[in-house]
Nucleic acid binder design. Structure first.
Length: 468
RNA sequence: GGCGCCGUGGCCAAGUGGUAAGGCGGCAGACUGCAAAUCUGCUAUUCGUCGGUUCGAUUCCGACCGGCGCCUCCA
């Protein structure tokens, strides 16, 4: 088995990875803030994490993945007060939509989806520890802040020199109650609208609500321990979110918070980052309307390395739709094949080796897909040739299943026991064709087409597949 | 202003100090009752531009041009 290598933002290099306990990867993936349905840019990151998760399992390790749902924050409270609702009335439907979209895109279930509002005790305890250690302080406004100059490692992830922020940078609104402009809120004193929206809790420092970064530190440590294997998110979370998580967690425990930090690049539309503030967002619903299947979108996302920006364009999407159709046709062909050749097995061996190596080399999905497509071409050529080598066919099937088990880019559902019913009608049609009764042959073709089954006559017999 | 990433054929895209994977599209051929699929061949003497290092650079270095991102909430 080759080493599994991953780019680590902490070291800025591709390092050999294995879980600390040698068996199960403990992974935290920053999830959505549920005030609005996630857009496909958000889902690019979640797909990168799905790729990571599946590749880890391909390597034979277990995974314990935690994805938080941020269900209390400024935007949620704002929306709730605008509509006279509580925050949970705002977040519940959005969470539901998130899971529907996530499943649509075939993103595997994480082991835990903890919500911030269900972890107040853990968060309060973390703040208490930080105050006790003299790293956090309560300001005149009643809020509790983290004093970044009391944590020597501050800035090690983002490598930002905090003194270098100059003209041209977007300027922070000064909060004069803080000791240092860079200090961030751990606990925000409750305002009337927070109370009204049900977003205020009792704490030793008075009623209030958690700061943005706090939930991730508290919940990550609650479910994964003080040091986890991997912490992921989009590149925009490097600073300040992840930097602040490190400060909070390591400030409290004195132990490394995460061994690896992995970040996915942005999805761009119309030349810039997809973001609600830019107004260039597309949702999973938009994808459906454009006829972009989950398989096609996965193909599109995985066709570019996760650390490279990716442009959402209709041409690229169309290429993915066609590419994935080919993968699906091949999948059906493997299912309906009767045998293979030794060369088929050899092609499968090569594909497995190349795809696996690519994936283990910092999740090089584009290269893995290249290996898959090369395999498809070679395997199709061998299947054209016929052959009755059952073992070779089984080998091809299992390799295809293994690679596709990571990429998951076959459109529509698996074939199942429909196969024998279709085969029976094809046998009847074959008899009709042999007596040159093409009227009957075409009638059967039409029947099957009406059921969504396309058939193709070739030198080695008739194949069938689902129409896509 | 600081920091960083990217620029490969019509489109998407991998890649390496030794001479350009793969997909989509296009063209031609094979196969075929029809159709579709599939296969085969062709489709970048060239990797933003200009210099430098080197026997040799797309790959290393420098400058420049262009695009994007982070330094605020943000996947």
């Amino acid at each position: 088995m080759v080493d599994f290598r991953l780019y680590n933002t902490l070291t800025r290099s591709v390092d050999v990875f294995s879980p600390a306990d040698g068996k199960t990867v403990r992974m935290y993936t920053c999830g959505p803030t549920v005030y609005n349905p996630a857009h496909v840019g958000n889902f690019r990151t979640f797909l990168f994490e799905d790729l990571l998760r599946r590749t880890i399992r391909l390597g034979g390790w277990g995974v314990h993945q935690v994805m938080n749902l941020t269900d209390v924050d400024d935007k949620i409270i704002k929306r709730a007060s605008e509509r006279g609702l509580t925050i949970s009335e705002v977040t519940e439907p959005v969470i539901e939509t998130f899971h529907v979209d996530r499943e649509f895109l075939r993103i595997q279930n994480a082991e835990e989806y903890p919500r911030a509002t269900e972890h107040l005790p853990e968060m309060i305890e973390l703040v208490r520890k930080l105050v006790e250690r003299g790293i956090a302080y309560q300001a005149d406004d009643g809020s509790v802040y983290y004093a970044i100059d009391r944590f020597p490692g501050y800035g090690k992830l983002s490598r930002l020199d905090t003194r270098e922020i100059k003209a041209g940078a977007r300027v922070v609104q000064d909060d004069y109650t803080k000791e240092n402009a860079q200090d961030f809120a751990l606990w925000k004193a409750a305002k009337p609208e927070d109370e009204k929206a049900g977003a205020a809790w009792d704490a030793p420092w008075g009623r209030g609500r958690p700061g943005w970064h706090l939930e991730c530190s508290a919940m990550a440590m609650r479910y994964l321990g003080e040091t986890m294997d991997i912490h992921c998110g989009g590149v925009d979370l490097v600073f300040p979110h992840h930097e602040d998580e490190i400060a909070q967690s390591e400030g409290a425990t004195g132990k490394p918070f995460s061994r690896f930090w992995c970040h996915g690049e942005f999805l761009l539309t119309e030349g810039s980052k997809m973001a609600k503030r830019v107004g260039n967002v597309a949702t999973v619903g938009d994808l459906r309307e454009q006829g972009v299947s989950p398989a096609a979108f996965r193909h599109f996302v995985f066709s570019t390395h996760y650390r490279k920006q990716l442009n959402l364009s209709s041409e690229a999407l169309e290429g993915s739709i066609e590419g994935v159709r080919r993968v699906g046709d091949f999948s059906d062909r493997l299912a309906s094949a009767k045998g293979g050749t030794p060369a088929l097995a050899a092609a499968a061996d090569e594909a497995e080796r190349e795809a696996t190596n690519a994936l283990f080399d910092d999740l090089n999905a584009p290269l893995a897909m290249g290996a898959l497509f090369t395999f498809i071409r070679k395997a199709n050529a061998e299947l054209d040739r016929g052959g009755d080598d059952r073992a070779a066919l089984d080998r091809a099937r299992s390799v295809f299943a293994r690679i596709n088990g990571v990429l998951d880019i076959v459109p529509s559902l698996e074939v199942g026991d429909e196969a024998s019913r279709i085969e029976a009608r094809l046998a009847y049609r074959r008899a009709a064709r042999e007596r040159r009764d093409f009227a009957t042959a075409d009638a059967i073709r039409m029947e099957l087409e009406a059921e969504g089954i396309a058939i193709e006559d070739g030198p080695s017999g008739t194949r069938w597949k689902r129409a896509r």
